[in-house]
Nucleic acid binder design. Structure first.
Lengths: 201, 201
DNA sequence: GTTTTTACCATGCACTCGCATGAGAAAATG
DNA sequence: CATTTTCTCATGCGAGTGCATGGTAAAAAC
């Protein structure tokens, strides 16, 4: 048979183009033509790998979720204690450098889009559940290690922590928090959960 | 001169139509024709009161800000203590009933839109600053009344509290927190700030 | 009455949209 | 070689987009 093409690679290429457009000009600027141009391919080629615009957006959303998951997994692997893992994980979710800022801009756009698109909402809930489960797990580990008060409801703490992180992201993206301010806010919040003083990293 | 028309009322009418469309079908479904149909007027009439789509969206955003401001002002007026005002204000910002859910859906859409639209971002920052100043003020009052620890940095606490609230809103809109869960999370967070146990309302 | 100012509407224009179609290029198989 | 399968492209279609224009109703001013 003919030309062997890595379909998955093509899809990734398309999804990345979608991400860049969403980041630069917003969700409403995403069109098949614009994506094709950004991806450096013809519109027909895009249509070959993606049957509909809706599916294309869903693909882009799912890949954002994977991207975040990979980042979190990679960084947390090399932290000494559960509380360090927890703090670093949340920091990983905040717009503290260009790449995370990029991820968060695109993420916020999809968050808003998910409100009126049930398929996208389902994908978001999935990533949300994973992240929340991971945070809960780390809080439990920190409790077991004596780094967090044993009396805390780990699930509830995870919800609050993640809500706080998301809120900071929103504010940072539209307002103008500096990375330092964002980090300071997080540590203030974590310090309130923590049994003792926060370890410096 | 001729037909006396309340321009401001017309603008409000148009803005409300924009809100309903954003709420029901999302930001990307907003078009002059759609808005005109939703507002029950001709496209020409809409154009008469709003010179451009961009301006129309900005108008709609500003009116959302006013709406929230009015709600907050109205409710907080009849609270006994500063801490009650604080709690009630934050509750006012959460999607706990149909109207607040409506406000938050539209608000989140504009938040995302503001990321790639500097005029909208400026309007959002304005509302953000007002709300944050108000929260800070209430925290200070609560400290003066002995309801919150005097050592807290009121401004920082307000930032954290508002970030938390925004994050809960995001999660509630796309996920499925019930109003009870949302309220429980808030009280958990407030309880951590508070010197003593939370008063029941 | 006529004039003047305000409010409104229908329509046109150039453009973009998502999607469908059919033709053709490219490469492995027979 | 020819055939078959995979991939790519250009183009067309109907619909929708923001915005501009010219005309028209209507009411106050004269």
């Amino acid at each position: 048979m003919p030309k062997i093409v890595d379909h998955d690679a093509r899809r990734r290429h398309i999804a990345d183009a979608v991400h860049r457009i969403v980041h630069d000009k917003g969700m409403e600027s995403v069109s098949l033509r614009e994506v094709a141009a950004e991806a450096g391919m013809s519109m027909g080629a895009v249509q070959y790998y993606v049957t509909t615009k809706e599916q294309m957006l869903l693909l882009a959303l799912e890949r954002i979720g994977m991207w975040i998951g990979e980042r979190v997994a990679a960084v947390t692997a090399r932290q000494p204690t559960p509380l360090d893992v927890l703090r670093t994980t949340v920091l990983e979710l905040l717009p503290l450098d260009e790449e995370r800022r990029f991820l968060n801009r695109v993420g916020l756009a999809f968050q808003a889009s998910s409100v009126v698109n049930e398929n996208q909402a389902a994908a978001m809930r999935l990533g949300y559940a994973h992240l929340l489960a991971f945070l809960t797990e780390q809080i439990r580990a920190a409790q077991a290690a004596g780094q967090l008060a044993a009396g805390l409801d780990a699930g509830k703490e995870a919800s609050i922590l993640y809500a706080f992180a998301q809120g900071v992201v929103n504010a940072a993206l539209v307002g103008h928090y500096t990375p330092q301010e964002v980090t300071a806010l997080l540590d203030e919040h974590l310090g309130r959960m923590s049994a003792g003083p926060l370890p410096m990293i």
